[in-house]
Write a protein that binds this DNA or RNA. Structure first.
Length: 457
RNA sequence: GUGGCUAUGGUAUAAUGGUUAUUACUUCGGUUUGUGGUACCGAUAAUACGGGUUCAAUUCCCGUUAGCCACCCCA
């Protein structure tokens, strides 16, 4: 304590001098960064986001899926009941809080539960079955951020509710596969069946028995999981564990005949569709509601080993979920895709292929204006042109022609329309070819036609 | 949640226990007022935050925060 007291006065002196210096040199207001694990999507990445969105929705609707939205906020209990209290997603990752009425709410950690809830809330069981929907939007998980892993991220996904048929499972996989393919990513489908609830219970008993007998050879991590979550040991990355798992009983051998037949049908349909899949007996999903078919789509990197965050898409059947949250028994299945991961993969791919791909020069137009008269006339003319479907870049707040041409150049404009005092008087504009520098005087009434010609060329 | 690495203008970087913290790009302005892609000049702008050691810390130490990586888990 006495030592501390000695230091105290010194501190004060330092603080005041530092502050004094800061105050005179700058007035700094605290700035804010995005919250941990949250990302700004920047204009320069516009095309990634818009392309992925456009392609995924067009594939989904081509297969007959309809768009739907559910709220970001739902009763916390909905997710707890459906995903499972013991799962990591619920027990340590969900954003839960009390709203101003003291109601316990959660930000959705995934879409499926909300979709199932909406199916019940809106009496969708009285629609022709099955009901096929797609969705897209942000979900939230308070996990530790890493490459390809954020606390707020976006999912695109499809769900088919109200029927149980292997062809549905196969269709969902095709939609996921084709979406990624159209986006430009070749993937491999990893697939397994975890059977019915009963099958799984029987299997777990057997598995735990086996693991206990090999307890000594397991990693410390996995030993803890024997009782808590034995299925997860199956896809452990630990080398020791992998060896033990190799000889472990396989869930496929414990499926009921019905589940086995069902799964075989799914695989047959996939063969029919020429979808490359890898039968993966160790694939188990982290959410409680899955039953029978489960699958994941990974980037098809030939030879390379999968990183941990490479699952672009995952899904499966969840026949018990709707009933679990209070609806009538309703078979259902679906998948969801991590948009950030898809974009990450696209960016990596773009880097690899840099230089190989030609940059297509799309004609882009710029409108430069000079002086108050020119600006007024420009406002009017651009409005007219836009109505004709011609889009132009411009910066009306810039005064000098030099600055505007500079901007036109930065935007890779192929042609620039120039309008100054003189042109206002004459009722004309100058159209400048940016690569050759050749300029042409055009009557204002004919700009539309002229520009359309340029755009078509 | 656990462990490892990291933190300098908007971006990318240099350097240092001691004068005014380097350079490039970007942004903005200018090089005689109406012509860009080159050149030149100028302006803005940083040692993440808090504490400690020291006469002196951006530099060394500790904590916090954030980022990256691996694990856990997941999209």
């Amino acid at each position: 304590m006495p030592a501390k007291k000695k230091v105290q006065p010194k501190k004060d002196v330092k603080k005041t001098t530092k502050k004094a210096v800061k105050k005179t040199t700058e007035k700094k207001i605290k700035t804010y960064d995005p919250l941990r694990g949250m990302k700004d999507v920047l204009p320069k990445h516009e095309s990634y986001w818009l392309d992925v969105s456009r392609i995924s929705r067009s594939v989904a609707s081509a297969y007959g899926y309809k768009y739907m939205q559910t709220p970001v906020l739902e009763p916390a209990q909905l997710f707890i009941r459906s995903i499972g209290k013991a799962t990591d997603v619920i027990s340590k990752e969900m954003y839960v809080f009390e709203d101003r009425d003291g109601k316990k709410v959660a930000m959705r950690p995934e879409f499926t539960a909300g979709i199932a809830r909406a199916y019940i809330s809106n009496g969708m069981h009285s629609l022709p079955q099955p009901v096929k929907v797609w969705y897209e939007g942000p979900v939230f998980r308070h996990d530790r951020p890493q490459a390809g892993r954020y606390r707020q991220f976006n999912q695109f996904g499809c769900e088919t509710l109200g029927d149980r048929d292997p062809v549905i499972d196969a269709e969902l996989i095709v939609v996921a596969y084709n979406t990624l393919k159209d986006i430009g990513l070749e993937t491999l489908v990893y697939i397994n069946s975890i059977g019915s609830e009963e099958d799984r219970q029987n299997y777990i008993v057997e598995l735990v028995g086996y693991l206990r007998s090999k307890r000594a050879y397991l990693s410390e991590e996995s030993r803890k999981r024997i009782n808590k979550n034995p299925l997860r040991i199956l896809d452990s990355k630990n080398e020791q564990d992998k060896e033990v798992v190799q000889d472990a009983p396989q869930i496929l051998d414990w499926l009921s005949q019905e589940s086995k037949d069902y799964f075989m049908k799914v695989l047959e349909y996939l063969d029919e569709l020429h979808i490359p899949y890898v039968l993966t007996p160790t694939l188990v999903r982290g959410l409680d509601y899955y039953s029978d078919t489960v699958f994941e789509l990974y980037l098809d990197k030939d030879g390379e080993e999968d990183g941990s965050q490479n699952a672009l898409c995952a899904g499966g059947r969840y026949d018990g979920l709707v009933e679990q949250i209070g609806g009538r028994p309703t078979a259902a299945a679906g998948f969801s895709m991590g948009i950030e991961r898809v974009i990450l993969a696209l960016k990596e791919k773009a880097q690899q292929h840099q230089g190989k791909e030609k940059k297509e020069k799309q004609p882009h137009l710029f409108f430069a204006q000079l002086g108050e008269q020119g600006r007024r006339r420009a406002l009017f003319l651009m409005e007219e042109l836009r109505r004709e479907g011609i889009t132009l870049g411009a910066n009306l707040s810039k005064g000098s022609l030099k600055a505007q041409l500079e901007l036109a150049d930065k935007q890779h404009a192929t042609h620039t329309v120039i309008l100054g005092q003189k042109e206002v008087q004459d009722g004309t504009v100058i159209i400048r070819d940016m690569s050759s520098g050749i300029q042409e005087i055009v009557d204002q009434k004919k700009i539309g036609k002229k520009l359309k010609k340029i755009l078509e060329a």
